[in-house]
Design a protein around this nucleic acid. Structure first.
Lengths: 136, 136
DNA sequence: ATGGGGCTTCCCATCATGGGAAGGTCAAGG
DNA sequence: CCTTGACCTTCCCATGATGGGAAGCCCCAT
């Protein structure tokens, strides 16, 4: 199948498929005489794997590791689990950070009249806050 | 004061200060004969404002709007509140997304032995999942 | 054989930030 | 007075993942 079909079936855009190939994430497929990329059903499988990994927030580098683990039939499931759990913690940390920002802002907004008057504790806070040493 | 001191006092790197100037987020400061940028105390104030805005997850474009509102003494606090609350919702959405990813992955990991054996439901899921129409 | 859709490569843009090079400047101390 | 080192200037490049689009070739159906 051509790249377009592989894209549709895997949920990965043709553009990205080419990119993944260029960075060595996936192996270059065979080519027709006219240089068209030719994909097998298994390649779609791999692409779906990548898609799923990305959807779960793994970076391409992490995805590369996961792919390697996936292909290595002899690896210990503990390796995979460790990688996954480390990622879970990262995700939860980022989620908590965003939530904290939202909470802070929501709190500030609570004290803002939100009417026609100009006074606004939100902007007042922005202007008054002293720089904290390095952010997250 | 020079850019270095303004950077230290505001918590915004010199590099970023120059960048903010280049995109018109902040107004170009005066220059010495040797082209050194010269900042006033008030400029540090502005930079802190930007820093705070960024720390709360506003994009530079949103920060630009907030700055405009800040400077416009006649705007209604409702305008600020609306912008802030819209942002709160965005932040909470993103936080929820990350949390959902974490939960999914944690769930998968629960079923992974995490020992020396190779079987791993995490990778199995990755490989089997059918592409969903568009992500987030 | 022609038209339209798909494929190829290549370059550019995004967003916010940092790194680093090459060169000018300033202040302090010998 | 001159050197040294810290600071400043501009300019270019890189990141991470993705999309947009141009120029040109290919393939199939009409």
């Amino acid at each position: 199948m051509n790249i377009g079909e592989a894209a549709t079936r895997s949920g990965v855009s043709a553009k990205m498929i080419r990119y993944y190939e260029s960075i060595g994430l996936i192996t270059p497929p065979a080519r027709t005489a006219a240089q068209y990329r030719v994909y097998a059903a298994e390649d779609v499988h791999t692409l779906r794997f990548v898609r799923r990994s990305r959807d779960l927030g793994f970076s391409l580098e992490e995805t590369r590791e996961l792919l390697a683990l996936w292909r290595d039939k002899s690896r210990a499931s503990a390796d995979v689990k460790n990688l996954a759990m480390a990622h879970v913690r990262e995700l939860e940390e980022k989620a908590a950070e965003l939530k904290a920002m939202a909470d802070t802002l929501r709190h500030l907004a609570t004290h803002c009249h939100g009417d026609h008057r100009p006074d606004c504790p939100i902007l007042a806070d922005f202007a008054a806050t002293t720089p904290t040493q390095g952010k997250a």
